[in-house]
């Protein structure tokens, strides 16, 4: 009896529940680890930075701190879209840097067990394929889970810290 409880406890520990902040981009739903999200902002003026890499939209002033905003659509290989009322800037921390990612909208926080996360189809050759860490079915929709640390390469993270 005790043994079976231990087994169940180990299984439960392995099958940890993770929280994900979901956002929309081009009608698909993506999820990022809630522990990496600092805050969500309404769209504000983004000041372009001359000579910045193509994936950088510009910078914003967040309570006295300068935060670089990434063009997420461009990073994901998606066509650009007009900014509207639901556009948000999600402030995240990845690779010891605080950056903003521009998304179409932010939806909710969802709870997922590790066992509910499936591997993404392993057929991608493009750079954007590597930052999908898994997928999960939620009702009728598929949640695509993004590994924020892999959103940029080591060189790009280093480049970003120089802006």
């Amino acid at each position: 009896m005790t043994e079976s409880r231990n087994v169940a406890a180990v299984a439960a520990k392995d099958d940890a529940v993770l929280q994900w902040v979901t956002f929309k981009l081009d009608n698909e739903t993506y999820g990022i680890n809630v522990m990496q999200v600092q805050e969500v902002l309404r769209h504000t003026e983004i000041a372009p930075v001359p000579g910045a890499p193509h994936y950088v939209l510009g910078i914003i002033n967040l309570r006295g701190n300068v935060v670089t905003v990434i063009d997420t659509r461009s990073r994901f290989g998606l066509p650009s879209a007009e900014v509207d009322d639901s556009t948000r800037i999600v402030i995240i921390e990845a690779e010891k840097q605080v950056i903003g990612i521009l998304v179409d909208s932010v939806a909710e926080v969802v709870y997922l067990r590790r066992s509910e996360i499936d591997n993404a189809p392993n057929v991608g050759t493009e750079e954007s394929a590597k930052f999908i860490q898994g997928v999960s079915n939620r009702g009728d929709e598929l949640l695509i889970l993004v590994d924020l640390d892999k959103l940029l390469s080591d060189e790009e993270w280093a480049e970003l810290s120089q802006i």
């Binding site: 994901f76 057929v123 991608g124 493009e126 954007s128 394929a129 999908i132 997928v135 079915n137």
Partner: peptide, 15 residues
Amino acid sequence: NHIIGRPKWFLGVQQ
């Protein structure tokens, strides 16, 4: 569901 970074021949995934 379209998944980014996949080849042109990969249409996406469906439940």
